[in-house]
């Protein structure tokens, strides 16, 4: 049995236990790994298990629910999994998880993205921190936050800024706490088509070949199999990770025809961040909703209200707020124009 311990900013601590922790999963949280932790907020145990279904409510023939407890079998395309959560509302949550071969092959897509990532965010939110779907880069201790939907330019902006000497806080999610941005350096998802030329040139020939192969597989399977290459941001040449910075400005990115930067109202930013948190929480958005039906007076039933309140507290720091429309073809010229505006705002 392998066991790895993790601590994120000493706020959320967790343990993963499994017969085997594959490389694709280990690399995801490599920057949070610790030899020893006390009182993990949650423990994830991967492997076959027998659920404790006695005295459970059964919902939709699928979900087994009792106080602090949730169990179901679920699937998406080729992946299948079984999950049991106990101590859902306590400060020591225990998760048991088993997946089929596909889940084992790409554990980052099922175990990490669907389960562990959710519980990391869930525990941060329970402690008053916000986890937002955004990239963030900083210079001289001042952080810029770039929330966006997938594909609207979060990662590209982060990588362009890294080339311009900015420090890295996160490219997919970051943590907000009382006007501070805390880093969240999980593995970067690199795919041939979104690969920045600067990185591509620095990759060994073998990694480049693997990327091409995955790209071909993606096209061959009519876009059903999408396997990212996982890279620790620490291993990317020229990327300097910083731990925390003061939030200076928020640039909410959306796809548009040309670059356009306008002032944004706080409510617009808060609304967008809140919706994004829900959209990034499947399948748990559903699981929590079913739990809330059975226990309408639980903390779980109020979870999304808690998240909205956290956002309001954590963003309230006099940071400047902007809407940015980013053209579909996000070239270096577009970026330079954006950077100029960003630095003028300083």
């Amino acid at each position: 049995m392998m066991k790895k311990n993790y601590s994120i900013h000493d706020v959320v601590k967790f343990t993963i236990q499994s017969e085997n922790i594959p490389e694709r999963m280990a690399i995801e949280y490599a920057n949070f790994e610790k030899d020893h932790i006390n009182n993990p907020d949650f423990v994830v145990e991967i492997g076959n298990f027998v659920p404790s279904k006695e005295d459970c409510y059964i919902v939709d023939h699928t979900y087994y629910i009792k106080e602090g407890y949730f169990y179901c079998k679920d699937s998406y395309k080729f992946g299948k999994w079984m999950i049991q959560v106990s101590g859902l509302e306590s400060d020591q949550t225990h998760i048991k998880l088993s997946t089929n071969a596909v889940g084992t092959l790409v554990p980052d897509m099922f175990i990490c993205a669907y389960v562990i990532d959710f519980f990391i965010r869930f525990k941060f939110e329970s402690k008053g921190y916000s986890v937002v779907h955004a990239s963030s880069m900083s210079k001289g201790g001042q952080a810029f936050l770039f929330p966006s939907q997938s594909g609207a330019g979060k990662t590209s902006t982060a990588i362009y800024l890294a080339e311009s000497g900015y420090d890295y806080l996160g490219d997919d999610f970051v943590i907000l706490h009382e006007g501070q941005v805390l880093s969240y350096p999980t593995a970067l998802n690199i795919f041939a088509y979104n690969l920045n030329p600067a990185i591509r040139e620095n990759l060994p020939a073998y990694d480049r070949a693997v990327l091409q192969l995955k790209d071909a597989l993606y096209k061959l399977t009519a876009r059903r199999i999408k396997i990212f290459t996982k890279m620790n941001p620490k291993d990317i040449p020229g990327l300097n990770i910083t731990d925390a910075s003061t939030l200076k400005a928020v640039y909410l990115l959306a796809q548009g025809d040309r670059l356009e930067i306008t002032d944004a109202e706080p409510d617009v930013i808060l609304n967008s961040l809140a919706i994004n948190q829900k959209m990034e929480s499947y399948p748990f958005f559903k699981y929590l909703l079913e739990y809330s039906y059975v226990f309408p007076n639980s903390n779980i039933a109020r979870f999304w209200m808690t998240c909205a309140a956290n956002l309001k507290n954590n963003l309230n720091s006099g940071a400047k707020l902007y809407n940015v429309s980013v053209p579909r073809h996000y070239s270096r010229e577009v970026f330079e124009e954006f950077r100029e505006a960003l630095e003028c705002g300083n």
């Binding site: 998406y76 399948p283 958005f285 559903k286 909703l289 079913e290 039906y293 309408p296 007076n297 039933a301």
Partner: peptide, 20 residues
């Protein structure tokens, strides 16, 4: 109060799936 919340959640949950 709980009944009201449950009626609402019961409707909403019909429009939410865990996966597609």
């Amino acid at each position: 109060q709980e009944a009201l919340q449950r009626l609402i959640t019961n409707n909403m949950a019909e429009y939410v799936e865990s996966t597609k």
